[in-house]
Simulated scan of single mutants.
Amino acid sequence: MLYGIVVFPEKHVQDFANSWRRRHDPHYSAIPAHLTVREAEEWSDDELQGAVNHLEQITSVLPPFSIHLNRVSTFYPVNHVLYLALQDTVSMQKLHEQVCSGPLTIPEPPKYVFTPHLTIGQELPADELHDLYGNLRMQAIELSSRIDRVHLLYQTDNGSWTAYQSFLLRG
């Protein structure tokens, strides 16, 4: 089964992101607005249990933190993705490093450098991406959210994602 690890921002941030995702993200109906901590991967039952144990251990020492989203950016030309960018990525980077350690160490060099973000549009034609980015980067964005838990998700048979288990940050 395919599993991934994410954090969900507070509702007001999800609502803002969804106002764009609804039109520009083909995965809008499959998963709520989120920040990916570890990319999806196929796991056996034993790997899943190792991941759960690892997440329980690391979340017991990591404290909750806040994120501040302050602009729209893009991964163009590597990917046709528009996203809300974090003002300071240190807390998300630390979470990523802790999650991707021990039994969840990524076995080969990752395809992309970890860039914490909240996707608001993807799989866009280049022209549409440039038009949207040109308009959105002029908007003032000031969104903050408290992150107090990590979610282990799995992909269902219909392609949507649902929580397998959530882990409170208790440090």
Rank of each mutant, 00 (worst) to 15 (best):
L2S: 01
E10Q: 15
K11P: 09
D15K: 15
N18T: 04
N18Y: 09
W20R: 14
R22N: 07
R22C: 06
R23Q: 14
R23L: 05
Y28F: 15
Y28T: 07
A30R: 15
I31S: 10
H34I: 05
H34S: 05
T36S: 14
E39I: 08
A40H: 01
T59Y: 01
F65S: 08
S66A: 08
H68I: 00
L69V: 12
T74F: 07
T74G: 00
F75M: 08
Y76A: 09
P77I: 09
V78I: 14
H80V: 00
H80Q: 13
H80N: 14
L86V: 02
Q87G: 11
T89E: 15
V90G: 12
S91G: 03
C100F: 08
S101H: 01
G102M: 08
P103Y: 10
P107T: 12
P109L: 10
F114T: 04
P116M: 05
P116H: 00
H117D: 09
T119I: 13
I120S: 01
G121D: 04
Q122S: 10
L124Y: 07
A126M: 08
D127V: 01
Y133A: 10
Y133T: 04
N135C: 03
N135V: 05
A140T: 15
I141R: 11
S144C: 07
S145Q: 11
R149P: 05
R149V: 04
L153R: 04
T156K: 13
T156V: 05
D157I: 08
N158A: 10
W161E: 08
W161A: 09
A163G: 00
A163E: 13
Y164H: 14
S166T: 14
L168H: 02
R170E: 13
